[in-house]
Design a protein around this nucleic acid. Structure first.
Lengths: 191, 191
DNA sequence: CATCTTATGAGACAAGTTGACTCATAAGCC
DNA sequence: GGCTTATGAGTCAACTTGTCTCATAAGATG
């Protein structure tokens, strides 16, 4: 019989990675509509049939390509929380200015409007970010740093929303002052 | 000779309006990629050649269809400014939840990443909104209602950003409390 | 009403894309 | 060295795109 199931064929992994890399490049450079079997195959220097073999449906390919762009936001909160949050928001602003993150974000938001699976991934993404953010704010509260204002459910919109606006509608430098004002919206910092 | 130049052929206007309406419907229901000559022609019950005649380039058709969705935000500020702004933000939140406004917004944001003309329209839209918003805040300041905080250039991001987040990433009810907290980020309201 | 102008719809057409298939080859495993 | 199988090249039908032609009829002009 053939190979063991747990040692993947190196030809397969080679093809898959080349295809995913090509799909990511095309998404970043020309948007979701450029991620077709044809163009990915040419870009990855791989037979068109090979792309069809691994990803029969184009959406799957796009989804997997998007999943390859990591977005590690608001992980591992540390005290004092406010400077940590400042760094995180700065990181988020910088990341949101990068072409690949921007491409994934808009593709996700766009797709979510018409494809239920994309909407599910968007919701999960928002939920994850929201969870982490609330964890950080809870930590700040427990450390006596912050007296939170209003519904914690609104925290992601208040803290991330302005940076989203700057990334999507008004590209440009995000000043330290803006980040300060964003943080002030989280509640009263007793410091 | 033929007709006067200033009285447009009713056949032309009829075709154009049917085509634009069909393009808007398709954009709202299935996204920008559905706005093709073929599909628009079928939907508008018009010959395919007619669509090509009026809009040789597909982007132009999409652009004109998007322009048909009005987005009259932050017009005609009134004192007292804070309640007026509350109403405006509520209106904006409601509008951003509507499928056609959402479709136009994401299409604009998406397109701006790869098409310079779309980027130009996005910048102009952001500039218009920003101008109106700053005018309202200036009015509030002159009326002694508000002591603005920080750079006025950041006001759109702080006030609109959270609602954009709620529209694009975290759909759901926007509470009055959230709108209050957003407005508090504009500065100190002396009232 | 008669006549001219011209926008329209139907259709033809080449070029390109999509998705599914076959098959010889060679890469990788034993 | 021999076996398995992923790959690339290619074929094929169905469809889409962009361009064109032409008969028709809607609308303007007298």
């Amino acid at each position: 019989m053939g190979r063991m199931a747990d040692t993947p064929d190196p030809r397969v992994t080679r093809s898959r990675e080349a295809i995913l890399a090509a799909a990511r490049d095309l998404l970043r450079e020309e948007g979701p509509s450029a991620v077709t079997h044809q163009r990915v195959a040419v870009r990855a220097e791989v037979g068109r049939a090979t792309v069809y073999r691994h990803w029969p449906r184009p959406e799957q390919l796009l989804t997997d390509a998007m999943a390859g762009v990591r977005m590690p936001f608001f992980l591992d909160p540390a005290t004092p929380v406010r400077p940590w949050l400042e760094r995180q928001l700065r990181l988020l602003a910088d990341q949101l200015a990068m072409p690949d993150v921007l491409a994934v974000t808009t593709a996700l938001v766009q797709g979510a409007l018409w494809e239920p699976e994309a909407a599910a991934r968007r919701d999960q993404f928002a939920a994850t970010i929201g969870r982490r953010l609330r964890a950080a704010l809870t930590l700040a509260e427990q450390a006596g740093e912050l007296r939170p204002a209003g519904d914690p459910h609104d925290a992601p919109a208040l803290l991330i929303g302005p940076l989203l606006f700057r990334a999507l509608l008004q590209p440009g430098e995000v000043s330290d002052d803006l980040i300060d004002r964003i943080l002030d919206a989280a509640g009263t910092w007793t410091d």
